[in-house]
Simulated assay, not measured.
Amino acid sequence: MTEKLSYQQEEDIPVDMLNAKSKLNVSWQAVFSALMFFYMYLPILVLTFYSFNDSAYSANWKGFTLKWYTKLFDDSRILTALQNSLTVAFLAVGIAAVLGTFMAVGLARYRFPGKSLYRGISYLPLIVPDIAIAVATLVFLAVIAVPLSLWTIVAAHVVFCISYVAVNVSARISGLDPHLEEAALDLGATPFQAFLKVLLPELMPAIVGGCLIAFVLSMDDFLIASFTAGTGATTLPMEIFSRIRTGVKPDINALSVILILLSGAVALIGELLRYQSEQKRFK
């Protein structure tokens, strides 16, 4: 009887009250999400705000200006450091794209002694602290007597870039039908042709996605680059760090905003490529 009464009471509740209650729950979720994102991105908002500050000191607001953005293009040290960072990133990512793809395909398609051990070792750069990689690389270069330069930074960045490309490609190749290559071989294609015309086009979105992640991380790296850089081989993060020792200036704020926008654009491109790849797979 009690259950029937409670059920009847629930039936008698107006529909408007039920809708208001559900809306209230959704609004609390929205408020919590908004607060979370506000907490996460508040430093970026403050950085962006003060990048338009007319004052040479970030703590004092004296008006709106764009001179700090235009000043960056006249700063030879910033442009040289940016050129070095782009050179390192493009070379490291290009080498890692080839080696990482072959590594992922070899681990997925072939069997050989010590495969499990090799798989674990190949992904170690993803979990090993950067300081350990930096010190190990520096010691290795000192043992083989290689002078530090821009090329030693490239070699050090290839180490962790390979792992990011390989992880993306491995995740992609695990969802592909292995019989596609067998069908190509049965139709008369050589193993290289089967890889080039059948497997590689399917892996291309994952390769590009891994390269974009590795490119952003290479551009952002400071610790490994500072340990393996030679005289005159200053990357952009190293240049920024050397300038903020005496205080953060508005031109560095402007440079940081530009880097954030470029990183966001790269992430957006990677997400669009992933989305288009998923749409093609389900068609």
Score class of each variant (00 low, 15 high):
V208F: 11
V208H: 11
P250F: 07
K197Q: 08
V216N: 12
G188C: 14
D186R: 15
L268V: 15
V266I: 14
L255N: 04
E202K: 12
A206H: 01
A194T: 06
V266E: 01
K249L: 03
A183D: 00
P191I: 14
T231F: 03
S242D: 10
T228E: 03
G270N: 10
L200N: 13
A184H: 07
A225K: 05
I240F: 01
L212E: 10
K197E: 05
A254V: 07
L212Q: 07
I213T: 09
G188Y: 12
A194S: 10
P237E: 03
V248G: 08
E182Y: 12
R245P: 11
A233F: 01
S256P: 06
S218T: 08
L261Q: 13
G247E: 07
K197F: 09
V216H: 15
F195I: 09
L236Q: 01
I258M: 13
A225D: 06
L200P: 00
V216R: 14
C211Q: 11
F215V: 07
R243P: 10
A194P: 00
A254W: 04
I252P: 03
A183S: 09
I224H: 04
M238A: 03
A265I: 05
A189C: 07
A194C: 07
L223T: 08
V248M: 12
Q193S: 08
S256M: 04
G232E: 04
L223S: 11
I258S: 10
F192A: 15
E182V: 12
K249T: 05
A254C: 07
Q193N: 11
S242I: 03
D186T: 14
G264V: 10
T234F: 01
L200I: 11
D251I: 08
E181G: 06
A267P: 00
A229N: 13
E181I: 15
A184K: 13
I244M: 10
T228S: 07
A233Q: 03
S263C: 08
A183R: 14
D220H: 12
G264Y: 05
I252M: 03
F192W: 11
V266W: 01
E239T: 01
L203S: 07
P250Y: 05
L196F: 15
T234S: 00
F222N: 02
F195T: 11
F227A: 15
M219L: 06
F215H: 08
A225R: 02
T235H: 02
T235W: 02
E239K: 02
L236P: 02
Q193G: 06
R245W: 04
I207G: 00
I240R: 02
G188V: 12
E182C: 09
V216F: 08
G247F: 03
S242T: 09
C211I: 06
T190K: 12
G188P: 06
I252V: 06
L203N: 05
I244K: 04
A225Y: 01
T228M: 08
E202P: 00
F215P: 08
T235S: 04
G232D: 08
D186Y: 15
F215N: 10
V248Y: 01
V257W: 03
I258C: 09
D186Q: 13
F215Y: 09
T234M: 01
S226G: 15
L199A: 10
F222D: 02
P201E: 15
L255V: 06
L261I: 11
G264N: 13
L199E: 08
L261V: 13
V208A: 11
V248S: 05
P237S: 05
